[in-house]
Design a protein around this nucleic acid. Sequence first.
DNA 1: AATGAATGAGAATTCATTCAT
DNA 2: AATGAATGAATTCTCATTCAT
Lengths: 189, 189, 189, 189
Amino acid sequence: MARPRSEDKRTAILEAATKIVAMLGVSAPTAKIAKGAGVAEGTLFIYFANKDELLNQLYLELKLELRDAMMPGYPAGEGPIDRSRHVWDRYIGWSSAHPLKRRAMRQLAVSDRITEKTKRLVGDAFGEVNDTMRECAAGGVLRHRPPSFVSAMMTAIADTTMDFVAREPAQAKRTTKAAFDAFWKAVAG
Amino acid sequence: MARPRSEDKRTAILEAATKIVAMLGVSAPTAKIAKGAGVAEGTLFIYFANKDELLNQLYLELKLELRDAMMPGYPAGEGPIDRSRHVWDRYIGWSSAHPLKRRAMRQLAVSDRITEKTKRLVGDAFGEVNDTMRECAAGGVLRHRPPSFVSAMMTAIADTTMDFVAREPAQAKRTTKAAFDAFWKAVAG
Amino acid sequence: MARPRSEDKRTAILEAATKIVAMLGVSAPTAKIAKGAGVAEGTLFIYFANKDELLNQLYLELKLELRDAMMPGYPAGEGPIDRSRHVWDRYIGWSSAHPLKRRAMRQLAVSDRITEKTKRLVGDAFGEVNDTMRECAAGGVLRHRPPSFVSAMMTAIADTTMDFVAREPAQAKRTTKAAFDAFWKAVAG
Amino acid sequence: MARPRSEDKRTAILEAATKIVAMLGVSAPTAKIAKGAGVAEGTLFIYFANKDELLNQLYLELKLELRDAMMPGYPAGEGPIDRSRHVWDRYIGWSSAHPLKRRAMRQLAVSDRITEKTKRLVGDAFGEVNDTMRECAAGGVLRHRPPSFVSAMMTAIADTTMDFVAREPAQAKRTTKAAFDAFWKAVAG
DNA sequence: AATGAATGAGAATTCATTCAT
DNA sequence: AATGAATGAATTCTCATTCAT
């Protein structure tokens, strides 16, 4: 297990892992992931000590990417509903644009292979998002709950929304609109 | 006639599967499930043709049990908020009382091993629950969405709630109360 | 393992075994044989102590049936070629009429599960057939070989013939005729 | 590059398979074959995708080896009986020298695991042998039959011969001689 | 560093046989 | 006697990980 040399290969492995985990779950064979990345089976273990480390890294990177997609352009000067809407739209937008990433993230989230440490790192990374959520929820029934609860609520509502959008794409606009209204009432109403 | 097939053993296998799947996911070995049920490895395949059938049956039974826990005592004569509250309380109550069942249900739900047929059976079984949800949502922003969407929303919000209750049991009451208020505003507000 | 009561059941098991062994080989499961015979899995072991005994009995019965099909109507008064032709025709006739029995017999013959004892019993049973063969071969190049060798030769030539007839049924008559001529030349020429 | 795939190991697996299949039939466990070859159980599946492929390859290689043993030194200039005798001697010689190979070949031939494709490849490979047989049979009763029929007849007669040689080795010479005479009369007489 | 052959501990099933009913 | 549920060893094949090249 020597020191890895190519950042490209690491990225290729993580991208292949996204696809394969999305499709086959966390029990996806490392050999398939390596093949998808265009590297040899053994090479994977140069970049990741073992499969668990790969899965944890993947989860972390996906979550960080999602976070990075949510904040830019945040309308700090606007009212809470606009700020909330911004976060919501970004979340829905990123998830719709990257269905495999979303599916992989979910598979990882329910698996027992994501360590507490990884979960903590993810929590830390979402500090800014949570702050935003706190502001949005400042006047609502959840104002005394931890901000991560509000974030989780948004994620839960948005994920459910996307499941239905996937089932009935024709209603996408209306479903998303209604779901945001519901979410807004939930946190701020 | 030979020994009759024992309902007790079938139940024991399903109960063991609940525990093991909750802990290890759908890749839980059938050998461990059989051992947990106190039967031989081969016996499992007398009661379930293969692992997929076991997983589908388990999912169906858990969902039916949850449904049966939700409806009794439904206050049909009361106003929507009370009726809604009834369903919510029952859902939270059952899930808190059976954390392993809830966890197993989730593992199964995100796996790709639950067939469309099983999903349809579950959907049919929740007809009454969905009717209730439709009534509750009649005046809210989700009134034009399918009732199963409202049900799914409640499940999502309640599941998120329970995750936080599990993390901070001291705040259970307050968290649950606030979450119900949020849910109520979301669907009826 | 009590004493079996019904000869019908024994026969049913052997008949089912013929079909199943013909189709699946000697590794055919006893459960399938029992099902084919319309009896319970355990019943098979009342009539046959174990699978090996079933297979040996089956082999013996098939061979005896074949023998019984070959001798009746034997034209003792005719010349050797007619007598030989009689045996040949009977063998071809029986095998064509009972392709499953023939196939089962072959599967059993090449398996390692037929004991020496069974083989000896079969050899003894073919005494009369062998005597006939000795007479037929009396003037030929095989006259100093054991008569069972001549029998085996006929079986080998006839089996090969039937394989080709099965492949090209349109040529059945001509193939069979030519093969008999070849056989006759081989043993008597 | 990693270790290259070793031709030695492939050969060792096929040789072990020959022994084990000869003794136990096609139901011989792959684990035993691997052990016999001195490789790990999993290694077998690097060289052969699955058991069926192993069995088909084995059958093909044995048949090709037999063919290669039959033709060298073919006395093209001699008369038909000498040419025929050459093929016969080579067949008997190879089969006597490699009883396990012969037994394995038979087990495979009667099993249902040899695909049509493999059978066709074998048939193609025996084109030259069949041509020889056609010439030998040109003046006999089988002259209008397909040459593969004559080949099959020779194989059948020779196999029967070897069974008897195995039973009475003291008579080997005489039995083989008489059997060839019989064969010659059959095809050319 | 990169490769992919090699390993062997499982994984899901199957099946001959036993035994409670 | 007859049944078929119960058993658990055996079977084929997979896969994370190691290591010779």
